[in-house]
């Protein structure tokens, strides 16, 4: 399996690009997609899922140009959008049967597969109730179920853990890892720790461009020996903030404990082990 995105651009108006000259090659495994709001992650995912077409460039899956032959991608695709809806008058069985029909899969095992998916995703108790009465987390699990229905060879997950409780998040992360043995998984998330723990490769985007790509360790190398912690008075905070890249802050007895990234650390700072979140902030703030 190989997904190739070559010099892809998406122009929305004369000077407004969602994606600009973007190239990346993705192979079996998990690609974590990180970037601030407006970085172009959604535009990229929409192009990969054939929802929109690029203005320039080509996207190929196993050497097949999916810009021209969208159905080649659609037959193998599992997609969990960030903000999807359901038909509230259908129950879980009916909705998943509909999704299976849309994807062009069926047969005598369909009912059994839906039942098993619903059981595994803890939706069996509500399977015969209208989806309109589901909670946000349950709807999210319905979304996961439909994405897995057709044994996808390429799975696109946009903010998949939103609405899931901590236990479900862990189960879902393990599930994605399991899936990635067989297919391409592209996982876009704001929760860096979700990506940190499972991604084989990480791509960082900003302003429609790819600013870094590599395995998490390579990405983290960008901030090795640049992450520090220090404690300052509250009054000093605004000056400090203007001079350094702040990762996190914590109030302790009238003072502020700050984790920050810097080439030139301030006195009394303690060097810390860098992580993916540090690297992500560093890359997006400095590029």
């Amino acid at each position: 399996m190989q997904l190739e995105i070559q010099n892809v651009s998406k122009r929305y108006s004369k000077d407004k690009f969602g994606i600009k000259d973007f190239s990346i090659t993705v192979e079996k495994g998990i690609l974590g997609l990180l970037g601030p709001n407006g970085a172009g992650k959604s535009s990229l995912l929409k192009m990969i899922t054939t929802l929109i077409k690029p203005t320039d460039g080509i996207i190929t899956l196993n050497k097949n140009n999916i810009v021209k032959d969208a159905n080649y991608m659609r037959k193998q695709l599992g997609f969990l959008p960030q903000d999807f809806g359901v038909y509230p008058n259908l129950n879980a069985y009916e909705f998943l049967e509909y999704m299976a029909a849309l994807k062009g899969v069926g047969g005598k095992n369909l009912k059994l597969k839906i039942t098993q998916l619903l059981e595994e995703l803890n939706l069996m108790d509500a399977a015969k109730k209208p989806i309109g009465s589901y909670s946000g987390g349950m709807k999210q699990r319905m979304g996961i179920a439909q994405a897995l229905l057709n044994n996808p060879k390429i799975l696109i997950l946009d903010e998949p853990t939103v609405g899931l409780d901590p236990e479900e998040r862990v189960r879902f992360r393990n599930l994605i890892s399991d899936l990635a043995n067989d297919c391409i998984v592209i996982l876009s998330s704001h929760i860096v720790s979700d990506i940190d723990s499972i991604a084989d490769q990480v791509a960082v985007m900003k302003n429609g461009k790819l600013i870094a790509k590599g395995n998490p360790e390579d990405i983290i190398k960008n901030v090795n020996n640049k992450v520090f912690e220090t404690t300052i008075d509250k009054e000093q905070f605004s000056v400090f903030k203007a001079q350094q890249i702040i990762v996190s802050t914590k109030r302790i007895e009238g003072k502020i404990l700050i984790r920050y990234i810097s080439e030139n650390h301030v006195k009394s700072s303690v060097k810390k082990q860098a992580n993916l979140e540090d690297a992500y902030l560093f890359l997006t703030k400095t590029n």
């Binding site: 509500a126 044994n151 236990e167």
Partner: peptide, 21 residues
């Protein structure tokens, strides 16, 4: 609105799922 009752927390094993045609 549905109140969820029991939850299974074992791992989801995809290979146990039947193949669709």
């Amino acid at each position: 609105p549905i109140v969820e009752k029991t939850k299974i927390n074992k791992e989801i094993i995809l290979t146990s799922f039947p193949e669709l045609r």
